[in-house]
Each structure stands twice: as structure tokens, then as C-alpha cells.
Design a protein around this nucleic acid. Structure first.
Length: 377
RNA sequence: GGGGAGAUGCCGGAGUGGUCAAACGGACCAGACUGUAAAUCUGGCGCCUUCGGGCUGCGUAGGUUCGAUCCCUACUCUCCCCA
């Protein structure tokens, strides 16, 4: 008698540091990676402004893709015919794909959610696209995503408990269906915990999702407009209750200090558009907080974006030059700031891992926070 | 020398008697951005303000009118055509 497979072959092991923090190692079909980890977001098959070579150079082991966006364009067929997502975008590392659950939130005006799934009027050409828990898993298997996220309903930050409850329950039903739909057990499938800022809902979502036995668990529905303290509260309460021996992913977070706080609560995986979006919009993330290089203040500033940074951009270029590039709408401007920002995030996570290992994370966290302008988050 | 057109805020450029501190762009200044419809979006952009409003203002100087960026006169300057 053969045991029915319920879990991916993707391996994950955690050790507990002296300070009680998590240090993990995850194996995927596209290489291993240490956690806590930051995953750059490459929605449409590209981490905006970066070549895969640059991502490798920065030490990124895993990036995100987005099922909704990739299906809208170039379409599932193209990616399949090109040999899967990794080959198509020429990325040798791991890929986690989000399901389109976030688009249920961000493209709320263009979609309709039913028990069956979510119908989107494509933002690109208006064409209707139907997402169900089943076909979303199927699509991600065709992509060959190392980590698949199930379709979920990500509600906005809202005080109406019944709305959040409904989304949470629907996410549970969809989770069960997603789990049943998987065929390729080399790929991991995570469960997503919803419930907004309501303790009982979060709790129920967590317990019932964990019962379904996924390969990892994610806290979803946070950083969707709620006050930061509320997000911290949720992470502080629920991260520790997620299974110890499996990856814990806080979706869409966040700013450096958000990440530090979440790591302290036991989160392993992060993704966020901040480094790349802020980069394109002219803000550098630095040890001192946010630095809006675009501002006139820096027009004659010879200093690097971050005086304590050793990235290629900071070793070579002045704020004045970068501001000029941004101002003149030279494409190099957004590229340079994005490069610095992503280096900052990846480096921060490397520092975090190192300090956890050394048993000095708490001090590092404290030092970082005091040097970082709180007003800039 | 003759004829014509025009001068508006940092720049371009609407406006042709009151609803104009003056449309719309651009530049400039600032803010936002957290599983990316974002190389995007929002706000400010004469001076002062207790944010109610007050003051100065559309080449210069006069004039008409209750009222002028808008009409008249002169001047200054710019551009175009003819000689």
C-alpha cells in the first residue's frame, strides 16, 4: 500500500537560536535558501529594472511572480511553450508565484468574487478571465513555480467583521479545493491565513488552514492599509502560533523595521515592492530612514545614497548625480536607486541571519531601530 | 521710409469689460507608495494671513468706465511684409 502524497518534496528545516529565533534552510527544485529571506517581487516575470544577472550578483535566491499578471500577459500558453517560467525569464533560482489573490484586493473594481472563484475583467484588454482555486494551482504547476500560493480572498482593511469573516471562510474553502487540485508534488503549496485584524477570525483561519497540511503558511491580508501597530499586533499574536517546523511567510511586508519586528516574532519569508517601487519613484531606503533623493536638497550633495552602504551604486555615485538622472528622467536614475534599495533589503536579511546565528539579533534590532528615523518607518 | 501683428505669472500659452491671482502645459517644490493596473499618483507653485481673508498684479505712463488683462491715447520694445 502506498501512502497518498500530501506534501511537497521541498524540504525545510529550522533551528532555534540562543535567543529563541528561527534560522531555516529551504530546499527547492531550483536551489536552497536560508531564511529569514527577502523575495524581490517580479510580478510580470521581471523584477523591475533588474536583469537576472544583477539579482544573482545581489545574492537573491528566490523571486516572486504573479499568476494573474502572467496569465493576462503573455498568457499561460506562451510560458508553457517556452519551457516554464524559469526558462522563459531565464532565472535559475527559485520562484514563488502569488495566485491573483492580491489582485482580488488591488483590482477590486475589475473583478467579481463568487463561491466558484474570481472573474476579472483584465486590466490590459478587458477580456474576462476566470480564476478558480483549481485552475490557479494548475497554472502555477504549468509555470513550474517552486512555491505556489492558493487563490485567496484578500479583503481590504475594514472594520466590518462580517465582510472579513466571509473572505476568511471563502479562503478556507478555496484552500481545501486548491490542495485537492495539486498534481505536481515537487512543488510546494502554501496555505494563506486571513481574518483581518479580528483575533477570533485569524485564529480560526490559522487552525483550520493548518489542519489541511500545507507545505508552509502565510499571513495574508496585512499591509493593506491598516495602521502599522495593528499589523504588528497581528504578527506578534499569530506568527508564533504557526507550525514551528514549516516556513512562515508574511505576505507583502514591508519596510525594514516591519521586517525586523516580524523576524523577532518568528517570520521566515518576506516580499515587498518597496525596494523597486520606491526606487523608481525616487526614494532610497537607508540606514537613516527614507531618503527622497529626488528632493532639491540633494542637488549638490556629493555623498552616496547611504553613507553606510557598500553596494556598487553607493561606492560610485553621488546623490547629486542620481537626483539629476531622476530629474532628467534618465532611465538610469530609477535603476540605480532600485539597485541600492534591493541591495539594502537583501543585505539587511543577510545581516539578520548572521545576527540570529551569532545570538546578537536583539541588539542588532535595537541598534537598527534607534538609527532609523522612526518617522520614516 | 510705408504697412501689419504683438507684449500675460519662472517658461510656453489661454483669456478680450465684472464670476481673474488669471484656463491648460512645462519647469520647480513637497508628500504618498508595503502578496506592483504605479518610471505612478496627490498637493503646492505673486506676497501676507489669526486661513475668514487682506494686498500687489497681465510692457510703461495716462485716460474712458461704477468696474479694465480685456476699450482709448502716447511711449518703449519685439516680430513679419513692402520699399
Amino acid at each position: 500500500m502506498t501512502m497518498k502524497k500530501t506534501k511537497a518534496e521541498t524540504g525545510f528545516s529550522v533551528t532555534k537560536s540562543r535567543e529563541g529565533l528561527r534560522l531555516g534552510y529551504m530546499e527547492t527544485p531550483h536551489g536552497g535558501l536560508e531564511t529569514p529571506v527577502f523575495m524581490p517581487v517580479g510580478t510580470q516575470g521581471s523584477v523591475k529594472t533588474f536583469t537576472p544577472m544583477e539579482l544573482e550578483e545581489l545574492g537573491s535566491k528566490i523571486i516572486l511572480g504573479n499568476t494573474y499578471h502572467l496569465v493576462v500577459r503573455p498568457g499561460l500558453d506562451v510560458i508553457e511553450k517556452m519551457g516554464g517560467l524559469h526558462q522563459f525569464i531565464s532565472w535559475p533560482g527559485a520562484i514563488l508565484t502569488d495566485s491573483g489573490g492580491y489582485q482580488v484586493f488591488s483590482l477590486a473594481k475589475l473583478r467579481k468574487v463568487t463561491e466558484e472563484g474570481a472573474v476579472f475583467n483584465s486590466h490590459f484588454d478587458g477580456r474576462q478571465i476566470f480564476f478558480t482555486p483549481e485552475n490557479v494551482v494548475e497554472m502555477q504547476e504549468k509555470f513550474g513555480s517552486d512555491i505556489m500560493m492558493p487563490l485567496d480572498e484578500c479583503p481590504p482593511y475594514i472594520d466590518d467583521r462580517s465582510v472579513v469573516k466571509k473572505a476568511m471562510e471563502r479562503t478556507l474553502v478555496w484552500a481545501r479545493r486548491s490542495r485537492k487540485a495539486r498534481r505536481d508534488f515537487r512543488l510546494a503549496l502554501f496555505g494563506i491565513i486571513q481574518g483581518g485584524h479580528f483575533d477570533e477570525l485569524r485564529n480560526e483561519s490559522l487552525e483550520r488552514t493548518v489542519e489541511m497540511e500545507f507545505d508552509g503558511y502565510a499571513l495574508g491580508g496585512l499591509s493593506v492599509g491598516e495602521p502599522a501597530p495593528l499589523m504588528y499586533e497581528m504578527v506578534e499574536k499569530f506568527a508564533p502560533r504557526m507550525p514551528w517546523d514549516q516556513p512562515r511567510y508574511l505576505m507583502g511586508v514591508g519596510m525594514p523595521i516591519d521586517i525586523l519586528r516580524a523576524v523577532a516574532c518568528g517570520i521566515d519569508m518576506f516580499d515587498c515592492v518597496i525596494p523597486t517601487r520606491y526606487g523608481r519613484n525616487g526614494s532610497a531606503i537607508t540606514r537613516g530612514g527614507l531618503l527622497v533623493v529626488r528632493n532639491g536638497l540633494y542637488s549638490e550633495d556629493p555623498k552616496p545614497l547611504d553613507e553606510r552602504c557598500s553596494c556598487k551604486v553607493c561606492l560610485r555615485f553621488s546623490r547629486a548625480y542620481i537626483r539629476h538622472l531622476l530629474n532628467a528622467e534618465e532611465i538610469l536614475g530609477p535603476r540605480l536607486v532600485s539597485y541600492h534599495n534591493l541591495h539594502f533589503f537583501l543585505n539587511l536579511l543577510a545581516d539578520i541571519r548572521q545576527h540570529i546565528q551569532a545570538g546578537t539579533f536583539t541588539q542588532f534590532h535595537k541598534d537598527f531601530s534607534s538609527g532609523y528615523d522612526a518617522a520614516q518607518r
